[in-house]
Design a protein around this nucleic acid. Sequence first.
DNA 1: GCAAGGATATCG
DNA 2: GATATCCTTGCA
Length: 226
Amino acid sequence: MTAADLGVLFNRPTLAVARGLLGSRLVRDDADGRRQARRAGRIVEVEAYLGPADRASHARFGETPRSRPMYGQAGRAYVYLVYGMHYCLNVVTGPAGVPHALLIRAVQPLEGVERLRAARFKAEQTSRRSPSPEDLERFRARLQRTPVDRLAAGPGLVGAAFSLDLELIGTDLLDRGNPVHLEPAPPDEPAFAIVTSARVGIAYAGAPWTTRPWRFAIAGNPSVSR
DNA sequence: GCAAGGATATCG
DNA sequence: GATATCCTTGCA
């Protein structure tokens, strides 16, 4: 899929976009000319939220201050805070006015691995309320032992590793000029199988939403969340 | 197994 | 304004 094709992809129905987004790159590039600062990874797991009918979607209450970004153009970012500590990235899909989105659940690091690790540490340092030096030291030691493939193997971990927060809301992720954006996989990348399953952490939504197979992952990829 | 933290939505 | 809940993580 070429760069122009991401724009084409996002004109398709949300569940098709979910499949097409797998393998694409999530990129953060804060380079200022002197300094190299690129972080990038392969998107290996996403979940689709097809609100407002979808009772698991943040759009289930209709258009509210929080859900408003989901009503915007396809390709924009919707970021939310869960459990008071983790920032989760969604890519808006569907035409304007239709609040569909894809939650980026896991990314396989490809570039800037040490920058991703440093960002994980910084997130821990700043998000917890005054963590003790001992806690931080334990965290650092564990982080050093964390395999590269597990650095962004969960939605909150993606947020931490790519330094995402609410300021990102509304960013056009299809614009490669933005520090945080999406890029297509290189054309020579091997094909992969896709596995589907039920979405995670939505028991409150009730049937039939809890069992919809709207979680998509690259089969066998070591960075998929557990 | 469970506590952590804060924004959000909904009630009074 | 008060309260229940949450698209999670890491450690006991």
